[in-house]
Design a protein around this nucleic acid. Sequence first.
DNA 1: GGTAGACCTGGACGC
DNA 2: GCGTCCAGGTCTACC
Length: 277
Amino acid sequence: MSHGWMQLAPYGFDEQTGLLTYLDRLSSGRVLEYRIREASGGVNVEAGRGLSATERAELRHRISWMLGLDMDFSEFYSEARREPKLSRAEKKAQGRVLRCPTLFEDVVKTILTTNTLWGATRRMTANLVAQFGEPLPEDASRKAFPTPERLARTTEARLRRETRLGYRAPYILELARSIASGALDLEVLKAGRLTTSELRKRLLAIKGVGNYAAANLLVILGRYDYLPIDSWALKMVSNEWHAGRPVTPVEVEAAFASWGKWKGLAYFVWDWSELKD
DNA sequence: GGTAGACCTGGACGC
DNA sequence: GCGTCCAGGTCTACC
């Protein structure tokens, strides 16, 4: 819950019951819904019946990635004990950032967060899913996130008209087409073989991904050396340490510099003071 | 390498 | 009802 991904389609979250849902399309082409609940020692997932062994293995792999189930934060927690503003991190098992099964989806969603309001990000994502996603067999009104191949077949004009992506439409289209054609492989970036600096270069090479978006994606990839400094970060740092005076990205960097390779994570789970009116 | 200016969209705000 | 501003930034042209 450290960022808003659970509010973006095809994720759904019920605050009353704590049920997290997600509509996914497996490589077999099967579209299904994951119903994920917290359980003792892990999570419980319902995902329909009649899955093959291959599909079950893929599903397990994808959900494990989405929830970061194999991530180890013990080193960060050890550092965080010296900072009261991070004291709840270990107790609440914070650090995991909800992510999508494919990096393609995370990149698209990150581009849709830029230069707009959160409500518009939600709307653009919902439009993309509704217009280009593959439907759930038992309820055609509910759909998975569109594949690069499906988006690659549409036109910029249709993207602009039907999803209201605005100037972001050509970025999303170019990304989808590069992946669909095989020219770009984003999934390989998850393997952890590249240095953070090299990973950042690859992300910045994507049209529509700048410093903020790259840093946000690095956090999603488990690299915390860069801060995703957006207008919200400027506002929160201003309120936290500068009595509401406007601050620059340099001052945001300075505020978290002492956290070194953990600074992106410290920023994400920081217990921010209430904004003053 | 640093920096204006343009960029879709739609909600908030002032008049 | 209308015009302006701006938001969880980025790109391009220009210096």
